[in-house]
Amino acid sequence: MPLWNTVRSRSVFFAKLSFKRSKLATNRFNSTSTAALLLQKNLALRNHALYNYENDTLRCTVLDSKGNMTTPSMEIKRDELISTHGLLPRDLRKIEKSRKNDLVPSLLVRENSILISLLTIRALVKCDAVILFDSMGISLESRAHTNFLTDLKARLRNQEGNGITKDPLPYEFRALESIFISALSNLGAEMKVHLTVTRGILQDLEYGITRDKLRFLLVQNKKLSIFHKKAALMGEMIDDLLQQDDELCEMYLTSKKAGKIRDKDDHAEIEMLLETYYSHVDEIVQTVRNMMTNVKTTEEIINIILDAHRNQLMLLGLRFSIGLLALGASIYVASLYGMNLENFLEEGNIGFPLITIACAFLMALIFAHSIRQLHRIQKMTLMGSQRSQLK
C-alpha cells in the first residue's frame, strides 16, 4: 500500500510538471506571436506611414486661402485627390513612396496646382489652398514642423495687410517661399553640424594621427558626400526650372484662375524668387565642397606622412641588414681562424690582434660601402630622372 501511494504521488507530480511546462511553452509561443504581430504592424506603419494601401488614402494637412488649418492629418482618397486637383496617377508616386532620406527633389507644374517634394516637405500648392503630405519621420509636434507651419500660416495671411505689411506675391508663390525657407533652414542647420564635427576631427588630427580619428574622418567624409549630393540636387532642380520659361509662366496659378494670359517672358517674380534661393543653395554647396576639399587635402597629407614614416622604417631595416651583413663577414673570417687547423699564426704573439683588427676593418669597410650605396639609391630616386634628362 505505501508503494502504491508513492507511485501515485510521483505520477501526479510528473503530470503537474508536464502541465506547467506545456503552459509555459504556450505562453512563450503566444508572447512570441504577439511580438511578431506587433513588429509586423510597426514595420507596416513605418513603410506605409503616408500612404494607406488598405483604404487607398493619403494622410495630409490642408490650409485654406486664409492660412487657417483644417483637420490635421486627415485622410484623403487617392482617386479624389487626382480628380479634384487635376493630377496624374504617376504624379503621386513619389509622394506615396516617400522616405525620410529622399535625396532627389522634384517640382511638377500642373494645370491648376504645383506638386513639390523638397527634402522632408511634400506639398500640393494651389491658388487658394495648400495640402501638406505628412512625411515619414516628421512628427506633427516636432520643432521644425511647428516652425514651418507657423511661418506658412503667417505668409499666407500676409495678403490681408495694408501698405508695407502686405505681401505683393500671389498665394502660391508665398507658399513656395515658405517651403523653400524651411528647406534651406533645415539644410543650413544640418550643414553647420557637419562642418562643426569635421573641423573638430581635422583639428584633432593636427595633434596626432590615430586609427580611431582616421575612421571618424572616413565616416564624416561619407556624410559630407551625401549632404553635398542632397544640396547639389536641390540646386540642379532650381536651375533646371529657371531654364524653362513655359514652366515658370505656368506657375502663376492665380493669374490662370483669373483668366489672365501671360507672355512667355513675363515671369520676373518667380524667376527672382527662385534665383534668390538658388544662390543660397549654391553657397551651401560651395561651402560643403570647400570642406570636402580640406578633408581630401588632409587625407593626402596624412598619406604622405604615413609614406614617409614607412620609408623611414624601411631604411632602418636596411641599415640593420647592412650591419648584420658586415658583422657576418667579419665573423666568417674569424671562424676560419677559429678552426682546429694549423695556420702558423698561433705561434706568434700578433696573431690575435692582427685578425681582430682585420675583421673590424673589414666590417667597417663593408658597412660604409653599403651605406654609401644606399644613399646613392636615395638620391637617384629624387634627382636621377632629372639628371638623365639633362644628360
Rank of each mutant, 00 (worst) to 15 (best):
N311Q: 11
L88I: 07
G137M: 04
L224P: 01
G384T: 06
M69I: 11
P72N: 01
E300S: 10
E172D: 01
L316S: 15
N68P: 00
F133H: 03
E275V: 12
L176Y: 05
R8A: 11
H267S: 00
Y51W: 03
I131H: 00
G161F: 15
S335C: 06
I301S: 08
G208C: 00
N294A: 14
R78P: 03
I226E: 07
L315M: 14
I322A: 00
L187P: 00
T150I: 11
L390V: 09
S33Q: 12
Q243L: 06
L313I: 03
K256N: 02
S225P: 05
L169W: 00
D102A: 03
Y207Q: 14
M363N: 05
I371M: 10
L354N: 01
L325W: 00
S65V: 11
F148H: 02
D212M: 13
N101Q: 12
L306E: 02
A360W: 11
R387M: 09
S321F: 15
L214A: 01
C359T: 01
D266S: 06
T61M: 03
P168Q: 00
L202D: 04
I377C: 07
F227E: 05
L92E: 02
E271S: 05
G163W: 08
T165N: 14
V288L: 02
K213I: 02
R262Q: 02
V62G: 05
R211I: 07
E96C: 09
I131D: 03
G188P: 02
R46D: 04
L341E: 09
K23V: 07
N30T: 14
L39G: 15
R289A: 11
N55E: 15
T150K: 15
V197N: 10
N340V: 01
M191S: 12
